[in-house]
Amino acid sequence: MENPPAIQATDLRKTFRDFWRRPRVEAVRGISFAVPAGQVFGLLGPNGSGKSTTIKMILGLLFPTAGRLDVLGASPRSVAVKSRIGYLPEESYLYPHLTPLETLTFYARLFRLPAAVARERIAQLLDMIGLAHARNRPVGEFSKGMARRIGLAQALLNDPDLVILDEPTAGLDPQGTRQVKDLILALAARGKTVLLTSHLLADVEDVCAQVAILFNGRLLAQGTLDELLAQKDKTTLTFPTPADPLALRKVRDAARAALGAEPALDHPRQPLEPYFLRIVESAAQDAASPASGAVPAAPLAPFLQK
């Protein structure tokens, strides 16, 4: 039997009202979608399209004006359900005078983790996000990217079944971005459900199995990336560049003869991200002095690999 969706929204609406209870903004206008359990689902759209409002309704922070919303089979306002959710907000909402260690300890207490488990997970997460060396510095002194990493760690403390990431790569350097994407894929491989929003469509493309596109509170498109993006009327053939230029001409002529159309021949370009990461990691290995910011992070925290 197929697993029930992790999130099911049916004709979901949200209207913000002014002081006199008059409708002011219709932020979400009757959207329906289902986030399958164990998949990475992207909620996309320009600013003001209703993504963050939808996420806050999923978290029970905002209340739908109409429609139905089920999260892990229960109401989003259920406290029990929230113990299975990890949430990374768009802005890093942190207490500025607390250190990373104190911040994560505070959130571990909110998740009611036993002290020994909390200590172990916090140590692993600090290693994972590359901030173990800065564990005793107030987070108010951190850069946006470093604060973002703390936000990510607090979202994973409870080893959640559903991870909600609002712009997870915003403010991160390419290494941090790659790490977050690897983390998302690793979580999905463990059967966790990930719902993310992002303006960075290349990041979404790298990790999401399905996406929904919102605009002005309405759902414009929804489906797997293959369904939405595959150009069925075009085909790519990739092969090693032959040493003899004549061989390439023969391939082109054969294709032209067989298809009756001029084929496009060029060299595929590798994405910038792996190139950048390769040269930066090489430079980091050669560097003698320790970094003051986030350091290249350790692999996935062991408790997230079990």
């Binding site: 806050k56 978290l59 029970g60 922070l61 406290v79 029990a80 929230k82 113990s83 959710i85 949430y87 907000p89 802005e91 909402y93 942190l94 207490y95 959130y107 909110l110 998740f111 009611r112 607090q154």
Partner: peptide
């Protein structure tokens, strides 16, 4: 926004 972060927890 810390209220949102805390109330998103159980």
């Amino acid at each position: 926004g810390t209220a949102a972060a805390v109330l998103a927890k159980p």
